[in-house]
């Protein structure tokens, strides 16, 4: 319950905000609903939640020019769970992950086919508001990439984009996010220090805090621990464990132990195709496909 406690704070804070702010921040309200549901929810609620996916993709394919990145992916990702995506290099894990918040748009000559929905919104619709989408879908990258600004400004970057300018609001929000990302105790004394002066693990947790600050519903993690040492990895994994109570997390990882440790669901990708998608315990103990078994036992890849 101690972890839930801080989450109450932003709720009350948001409720007291002006109507103008409400208009600006639809994403936050969606998040708020989600949060209330979770914080007040029982295991029963969670179970009902699981049935409808927060991300649902149907026959989704993505192309780089003429090369196919992923093809015909059909899967649902359930809220308030950790979903791990594993697979050999170049199998389309990252492509799929980055399609969810359309980060692949940066690459020229790409196109998507099929349907990919986040919370009922078609991601690859021309009318989709990218800003709203990306504020709902936070992302943590492979390498820690804090901005060359102070720790405070790094975390406050997202909220400021949403129009939160009041210093006290920002301060409480930043503190909350840093606490959620389990880095508050390490940086609380020098929030004005440059983020680049932190260690790699700290930077990665700061990036997570920065992603949390936009109040997303979803957190995409693209191999968040690949550049970190085992100790920092442990801390991030602990963090994921705590965050999954409030956020839906999709994590791409090369480390099968990590997938087994942190995730509830696991998807196995190979050569751009989804081979198998199942509960983690089942996938790792009784894989349904030969390819999966080969991969997780280390006979292939």
């Amino acid at each position: 319950m101690e972890d839930n406690q801080p989450q109450e704070k932003p709720v009350t804070q948001m409720e007291t905000q002006s109507p103008v702010m409400e208009k600006i921040l639809p994403a936050i309200h969606i998040k708020m609903d989600n949060q209330k549901q979770v914080t007040s929810g029982t295991t029963q609620d969670k179970a009902t939640c699981n049935r409808c996916g927060i991300i649902s993709s149907k026959e989704f394919s993505f192309f780089y020019g003429n090369t196919c990145g992923v093809k015909n992916i059909s899967m649902d990702i359930y809220p308030c769970m950790v979903t791990a995506i594993i697979g050999p290099s170049g199998c389309g894990k990252s492509t799929f992950l980055r399609s969810i918040n359309r980060m692949n748009d940066l690459i020229p000559h790409t196109r998507a086919k099929g349907r990919l929905e986040v919370n009922g919104i078609n991601v690859y619709d021309k009318r989709t508001n990218l800003v709203n989408l990306r504020q709902q879908v936070g992302m943590v990258f492979q390498k820690p990439n804090p901005f060359a600004k102070s720790i405070f400004d790094n975390v406050a970057y997202g909220p400021r984009l949403q129009g939160i300018r009041k210093k006290s609001d920002l301060e409480s929000l930043v503190e909350q996010c840093l606490k959620d990302a389990a880095i508050w105790d390490e940086v609380k004394d020098n929030l004005n220090k440059s983020a680049l002066a932190l260690s790699g693990g700290q930077q990665q947790r700061l990036c997570i805090a920065r992603a949390l600050a936009t109040r997303p519903k979803l957190l995409l993690m693209d191999e968040p621990c690949s550049a970190l040492d085992p100790l920092a990895t442990t801390r991030i994994e602990d963090l994921i464990e705590q965050l999954k109570k409030f956020y839906t997390i999709v994590i791409v990882t090369h480390n099968m132990q990590q997938a087994a440790r942190v995730s509830e669901w696991t998807a196995f990708f190979c050569l751009g195709e989804l081979i198998e998608y199942d509960k983690t315990t089942r996938l790792f103990t009784k894989p349904g496909k030969k390819q999966t078994e080969d991969y997780i036992t280390g006979r292939f890849g």
């Binding site: 709203n132 504020q135 992302m139 990258f141 901005f147």
Partner: peptide, 8 residues
């Protein structure tokens, strides 16, 4: 990417 992913 970091900035864009935050909705900027």
């Amino acid at each position: 990417e970091a900035s864009l992913s935050l909705g900027a």
